[in-house]
Every structure is written in C-alpha cells, then in structure tokens.
Design a protein around this nucleic acid. Structure first.
Lengths: 211, 211
DNA sequence: CTAACGTTTGTCCAATCGGTCAAAATTTGC
DNA sequence: GCAAATTTTGACCGATTGGACAAACGTTAG
C-alpha cells in the first residue's frame, strides 16, 4: 500500500493520473458546481472508473480542495504583477487586459471560483480573509500612492479593484448571457476585443486626474 | 382532486401557501443552487412537510421555473425604467443606483440568477435570447441616440450595459469576497454607499463626452 | 350531523450518490 | 522470468434524493 495523497506522489504515473483527474474535475466542477457534479462524471471525463479515481484522491472534497488550492496562485497572478514601477495608467490598463485575457483563456477557472464564492465560499473563506485580503491591501497602498501624487484621480481603491474584477470576470462567468444578448453576429470571438477597448476607455477616462 | 398547478390556484389558502413555498425556495435555491438544494430543505424552510409541498407544486423543477419566471420582471425593471426623457447622465446614474439598491435589497434574487447563468442558463436561455435581448437592443438604441447628440461619449453601448450589470451585481453575488477583502471595519453597511459613490464617479467621468 | 371537498402526513420506493473492498490485471525491480 | 508492488475493476453498501400514494385530518355547505 502506498500512501496516496498523504505526501507527494512517488511514481511518474501517479503524477500524470492526478493531473488528468484534476483537468477533468475542472471541466466538471466549473460546469455544474460542487454539489451538482458527481465523482462518476469526473471519472468518465478522466477516462477511468470511479474506484480507480478514488485510488488517487481520498474523495470528492479532496479533489475540489486540491484543484482550488493549485489554481488560486494562477488566478491572483495578474494582480500580483500590478507594480509601482512605470506609469499608473499603463499599469492599470495592463492589469485590465491581463484579467480579460484570463477570462477569455481560462473561463473554467473563473467559473470554478465564481461557484465557490456564490455558495458563500465555504471551503476557501480563510484564504479570502488571509492571503487575498493581504494582497489587496498591498495593492490598495500602491494605488493610494498614485492618487497622492496626482497621477490618477482620487477615488476608492478597494471598489476600483472590485470594479475591475467584476467587469472582466463577467465575460467568463456570464458568458452565456453575454452571447445571448449580443446575438450570433456580435457574439463571436471579437467580443473580447470590443470589451477590452470599452473597459480600457472606461477606466482610463474614469480615473483621469482632475485638473 | 383539484387541478393544482395546471391553471391558477382557486382557494385563498393555495395562493398563500404557494407564495410561502416560493419565498422559502428563493432562500434555499439562492444559497445552494438548484442541484445543491433539496425539496426537503425547502419544505422545512416553508414550515411544512415534503409531501405537503408537493401537493402545491408538481416538483422541484416546477418550483424553480415558477420562481425564475416570476422574478425575471422584477429583475429587469430597473433597465426598463431607463428612458430617453431627461439628462442622459442623470438617467445612467439613476440606473446604476437602482441596480445597486437591488443588489443590496434583493441579494437572493441576484444569486438565484447568477447561479442559473453560471450553469449555462439551461432553464432560461430562451428568455435571454428573446425577451432580454430585445430589451437590451432597445436600450442600446437609446444610448446610441445620446452618443449621436454628443451628450455622452461615443463608446460600445452593449459593453456599457454589461459593465453596469457586472459592477452592481458583484456586491450581491460576491458579497462574501467583498466582505472578506474589506475586513470587519470597512465591510459594514456603509460599503454600499462607498460603492455607489465610486461607481457613479467612474461611469460619469468615464462617459463624459470629449470636447 | 354529515357528506363532499380540500389539506396534511406517514410510509414507502426506485434512482442516484459517495465511498469501500477484495480480487484481478498490470507494471516494475531484480 | 518472476516475485513484489502498483494499478484497475466489478460488485457491493449505506445514505440521500425526488417523488408517489393512500389514509387521515380538517373544513365547509346543506
């Protein structure tokens, strides 16, 4: 008997299968939520039997927790990149663009987190109150510096971050609605370009420092 | 045997009980999603037994469908009110304020719809493509008029609407995250006032027509 | 009072769920 | 090539779920 998930997997095949399962779980969890997904669905999506999947993970919760933990860093990377060096407007435009690219290229990850938060974040609330809050507090200070030096308009940095989160993730989380409203002609791939142009203008003009 | 849900309920007690069940279902569905909620939970929340609840509704799907249908009009009311009369900026500020008030006063309704859309809107996709799209198309034309007459900046009306939806509903759908990030001191009731001030400034400045 | 109608409940059922287990199949180390 | 270790599977289990049903309970009109 190996020790399974207790410590790092040993064999190469365990690494690969665990990765395969996590990829399948991302697909299933992001589409149906935690309660709406079944272990069997994940197993089928991973191309293996349910007992086989449970040989690599202790259970449904374990898969979800591993997935969430592994993806959090990736998800927060764009905000981490926001830095004090360079022009504030360029920094903010870059952040918005990166977030929008993530909504376009990783919509499943976005929906996975959205599902979790919507349900009250029962599994990652400590992470939000700890790691995420510290990161945001840090970036809020950066923005306050920009405001003090008059390089962006004086406004609430927290709600500015919320607004960027909301507008960008909207295109991943509410993709169906966006497509439905835009219709077949405007709902194609170009919608992300249109969104990028609009959001950059909105935030740049909206944050232009007053004379 | 009465005809239950086939046509409108006849007795006064049926009206009341159906309303009671829908209120309980809103509470449960918005907190756990459709798949995550059980008929028993709804029955308990409504203060009755499961078979008794099933006497008033054909089944779980029936409750959800009735709830969704009944709430859609309420949910779209703020957008319907957006009108061509009066100052465009005042109209838009009013719309943002109304949407934010709905996020504050009716967070369960917001989460109910968010859950549905997140799962791919399996039950209301036709409504989005029909009723909602027509309404948005209509308001887009109103905004285009404002842009042609130079009263707001020329920009993409569709994505403007998306941005207003996203930023306002964010405070209902991602409430846990907002509270966690703001912390105990700033996460109190005042957060909606702060959000309103920020969003009004962002959109008014962001849409100010260029000279 | 009582018969008809509307309401409520206890009990039950089939399906689905997460998870276990021992045995079979396969891979690996020597 | 072979024994030990790892991987895979079929069969199974208890719990939960949505829903059915007939019997019991209440209510009201005559």
């Amino acid at each position: 008997m190996t020790q399974k998930t207790a410590s790092r997997p040993r064999t190469r095949i365990q690494q690969e299968k665990r990765e395969l399962i996590l990829e399948a779980a991302l697909e299933v969890f992001s589409a149906h939520g935690f309660r709406g997904s079944t272990v069997d669905q994940i197993a089928v999506a991973a191309g293996m039997s349910k007992p086989n999947l449970l040989y690599y993970f202790k259970g449904k919760e374990d898969i979800h927790a591993t997935l969430m933990q592994r993806l959090l860093d990736t998800w927060l990377a764009p905000l981490r990149e926001l830095d004090d060096i360079g022009d504030p407007m360029t920094e903010l435009r870059g952040y918005i663009r990166r977030k929008l690219e993530m909504a376009r290229d990783y919509p499943r990850e976005s929906r996975l987190f959205a599902n979790e938060i919507l349900q009250g974040a029962p599994r990652i609330l400590p992470l939000l109150q700890g790691e995420l809050k510290r990161l945001v507090d840090d970036k809020v200070e950066v923005m306050r510096g920009w405001m003090r030096s008059g390089r962006i308009a004086r406004t609430d940095p927290w709600h500015l971050i919320f607004a960027i989160w909301a507008t960008t993730q909207h295109y991943a989380d509410f993709d169906v609605q966006v497509r439905a409203v835009l219709g077949p002609d405007r709902g194609g791939e170009g919608r992300f370009e249109d969104a990028a142009r609009f959001l950059e203008t909105l935030f740049v003009e909206g944050l232009r420092p007053k004379a």
